[in-house]
Amino acid sequence: MNVFLIAAPSALQQALCHWFEMRGRAFQQVLPAAVPELGQSDLAGSIVVEIATLDAFQRGQELALSGDDRHGLLDQARLAGAPVLFLSDGRVFDGDYAPINHREADKVQPGSIPGARLAAVEHLLERQLEQYLVLRTGPLFSEVGDNFFTGLFADLVRGGEIALNSGLKTCPTHVADLARVVSAVVDQISCGAQNWGSYHYNSSGQTSAYEFTEVMLAFASQQLDLEKRKTSLRSAEAGQRIEPAVPVLRCEKILHDFGIKQLPWRSYLPQPIKVLCEAKQK
């Protein structure tokens, strides 16, 4: 089964292309602006993987697809019998009083504009398609581009005291981990799996910005002399948070239906820290 990957250039797009290539999965990248050109014949025998919307919202940007273009895409996918996999995140629950342990069956309660927009797209898929997957995730990080991870690393290298929130919990997820999961889901759908609806995947290990940065500091200190920069961390309610602030998701359903296990975010930290440290030393 071919993949139509709707994505703008990004760290997640690069990670997903890497996984498709590694798995020998045929895929075609389509920029959001080219979506209106896709027809029924283009999508026949394919699965549409739409990551552009999540990518934009995770980076604080505007919607990548217009409403008309999205409706047109879903109409063409339905006519072609092409499943659609849409990436969303846990902000569809950020209006709930409980910030952790949301299941797929929980009522969607967005409290933010990104959460409401993601929820609206999810509802649209549910109304228009029988064969669709919504995969909700956590706050994404990467050593590439601007995100909370590269921002925190810059703060560590700059030195001095860094005030960090220690109360708000979330599950940061490296783009390579999410790409692994998307690739595995596509493989199983290609083999005939009929698991449709909403699923959750974020890396395991609830953490705060303070705890996450403590681990970053430990790894970075092995390669850079941060003592000279007098880098220190301070817990503060008004300190930096992991952004975007995405509620914690429970991920048992994807394990039960697809056999996909959660991996800890800690296991993904050493390599990106090494890359950033080596770039700093050049």
Rank of each mutant, 00 (worst) to 15 (best):
I6S: 04
A8Y: 00
L12A: 03
Q13C: 13
A15M: 04
L16M: 11
W19H: 14
W19K: 15
G24I: 11
G24V: 12
G24P: 10
A26E: 14
F27N: 10
L38C: 10
L38W: 11
G39S: 12
G39K: 14
G39H: 11
D42A: 15
S46G: 11
V48E: 11
V49Y: 09
T53Y: 08
A56E: 10
Q58A: 13
L65H: 11
H71A: 13
L73D: 11
Q76L: 00
G81W: 06
V84I: 12
L85M: 15
N101K: 08
I113L: 14
P114Y: 04
A116F: 06
A116P: 00
A116Y: 06
L125G: 06
L129Y: 11
L133E: 01
T137V: 08
T137I: 06
L140S: 07
L140V: 07
F141T: 08
E143Q: 15
N147A: 07
N147M: 08
F148G: 05
I162N: 10
A163F: 12
A163I: 00
L164I: 02
N165P: 01
S166T: 01
S166F: 02
D177W: 00
A179D: 06
A179N: 08
V182Q: 02
S183Q: 12
I189S: 00
Q194I: 00
S198L: 13
H200Q: 04
G205C: 04
Q206G: 08
F212I: 04
A218N: 12
L224C: 05
R229S: 14
A236G: 01
A236K: 12
E237K: 09
P247N: 03
V248L: 00
R250V: 03
D257F: 05
K261L: 09
P270A: 13
P272F: 12
V275R: 14
L276R: 13
E278F: 04
E278W: 10
K280I: 00
